[in-house]
C-alpha cells in the first residue's frame, strides 16, 4: 500500500446517469488503474471487469442520536474489512480502493464510517471525493435536487462528463455555476468517458487555489452567472494575514460543527498556526478528516491562512464575526487580508 501504511480510498459520486460507471469502466479497461479494487453500490448497465469489482447492497445503520451524515454504512465496512484481510494474507494487491456510490447517495456517511471505525481508520484514508456532473443535465440536476448540490459541495474534484455531446457554451456556464457552489474543487472535463488528465495525481487533492487566484480566474472567464439558483448556498474564501491560534480555532470549529454541522457542507483550507508548516483542514459536515500537519511551507508561496467555507442558510458575515470573536480569546484580533463574500459574482 502506498501513502505510508494507509490505503487511499477515492469516493466517486454523481447524480443518476451522470456517467460514473462509464468513466470507471474506461479507466479500468485503459489499464490506468493497477491494483485498484472497486466497490459499487448499484447495478450498472456497463460491463466492467468482474474480477476487480465488488457489488454491495446498501445497508445503513442509523446511530442513536446521530444526524443524517453520521450514519454507519455497515455494508461498506464489512467489504473494506474483507479486502484488508485478503490484502494482508497476500491474495490481493491493493494500492487504492474506489467506492462508487449510488446517484442519490450522500458521501458524508462513507467518510464517517471510515474515519470512526476502530480498524478501518488505521488502514484506510479517504484521499478525495470525485463528483461527476453531466454537462447536459447537470444544470437541471443542480436546480432540482439538493442531493446534487451536496455532491458538488463535498467534492475535491468535479468531472464534467459528456462534453462530447454538449454545447461548449453550456459546459462553460456549468463550470461557472460549480465554481459558485464549490470554489475549492478542481474541475476536469471528460468526453465520452475519457477524462482529460490523470485523476489520481498525488497530493493534488489538498491544494487550494488562493482567494486571489480564484478571482483572477473569474475575471478571465468574463461572464456572469445568473445566481437565481440555489441562493441559500453560500461560499466564501477568507485569507488571514497573521497566524491563527490552533487551540482557539479548534474550539471554535468543533463548537460550530456541533451546532451547525448539517448546514456547513464543506470547510477546506490551510491554516497558519505560527509553526514551521501549515495545518491542512478538510471537513464535510460534522466530519473532519484528521488534520495534516505539513513539515514546511515549501508548497505554498504565501505564508498565510486560507480557508474556504461552503454553507447553507448561514450568512458569511456570521461566520466571520464568530471566528474573529473566538480568536479574540487569546487577546488578539486576527487581521483579515482578503475576504470574498461572493467570490463568484
Amino acid at each position: 500500500m502506498k501513502n505510508g501504511n494507509k490505503c487511499p480510498i477515492t469516493i466517486v459520486t454523481g447524480f443518476l446517469g451522470s456517467g460514473k460507471t462509464t468513466l470507471l469502466g474506461n479507466m479500468l479497461r485503459g489499464g490506468l488503474l493497477e491494483n485498484v479494487s472497486v466497490i459499487i453500490n448499484e447495478y450498472g448497465q456497463v460491463g466492467l471487469d468482474h474480477r476487480l469489482i465488488r457489488r454491495i447492497e446498501e445497508r445503513t445503520t442509523l446511530l442513536s442520536g446521530g444526524c443524517v451524515c453520521c450514519n454507519r454504512r455497515d455494508d461498506l465496512i464489512s467489504e473494506l474489512l474483507d479486502m484488508l484481510n485478503s490484502h494482508q494474507s497476500g491474495n490481493l494487491p491493493l494500492d487504492r480502493v474506489i467506492v462508487e456510490t449510488t446517484g442519490l447517495a450522500d458521501p458524508a456517511p462513507i467518510l464517517f464510517s471510515i474515519t470512526t471505525h476502530p480498524v478501518l481508520t488505521h488502514h484506510y484514508s479517504v484521499d478525495m471525493v470525485v463528483t461527476c456532473l453531466d454537462a447536459i443535465n447537470g444544470g437541471m440536476h443542480l436546480a432540482n435536487n439538493p442531493e446534487s448540490i451536496k455532491q458538488v459541495a463535498t467534492a475535491d474534484k468535479i468531472i464534467i462528463t459528456k462534453t462530447d455531446i454538449s454545447q461548449h457554451e453550456a459546459t462553460h456556464h456549468l463550470i461557472h455555476h460549480i465554481r459558485h457552489i464549490n470554489p475549492s474543487a478542481r474541475v476536469l472535463t471528460s468526453a465520452n468517458g475519457h477524462v482529460s488528465e490523470r485523476l489520481f495525481d498525488p497530493d493534488d487533492s489538498m491544494t487550494l487555489p488562493s482567494a486571489s487566484d480564484i478571482l483572477d480566474k473569474l475575471e478571465q472567464a468574463g461572464s456572469s452567472w445568473d445566481s437565481g439558483h440555489a441562493t441559500n448556498i453560500r461560499s466564501m474564501a477568507v485569507q488571514f494575514e497573521e497566524p491563527l491560534d490552533w487551540l482557539a480555532f479548534g474550539i471554535w470549529l468543533s463548537m460550530l460543527l456541533q451546532k451547525h454541522g448539517e448546514k456547513i457542507f464543506r470547510i477546506k483550507g490551510i491554516v497558519d498556526v505560527g509553526e514551521d508548516g501549515p495545518i491542512v483542514i478538510n471537513g464535510v459536515q460534522h466530519i473532519i478528516h484528521p488534520p495534516r500537519h505539513l513539515e514546511d511551507w515549501r508548497d505554498y508561496e504565501a505564508r498565510n491562512s486560507q480557508i474556504v467555507f461552503i454553507m447553507r442558510d448561514i450568512e458569511p458575515f456570521q461566520i466571520m464575526d464568530s471566528l474573529t470573536a473566538f480568536q479574540n480569546l487569546i487577546g488578539a484580533e486576527p487581521k483579515i487580508q482578503e475576504i470574498n463574500l461572493n467570490p463568484f459574482e
Partner: peptide, 27 residues
Amino acid sequence: LGDMWQEAQKLTDNRLDPLDPGLLSHL
C-alpha cells in the same frame, strides 16, 4: 472537545450557539 460540546448542549437544552451575537459580545 467533540464529547464536551455534545454534553454541554444537553446540560443547556441545546442553547450553545457559536453564532449567537450575545455570546460573541460576551467574548
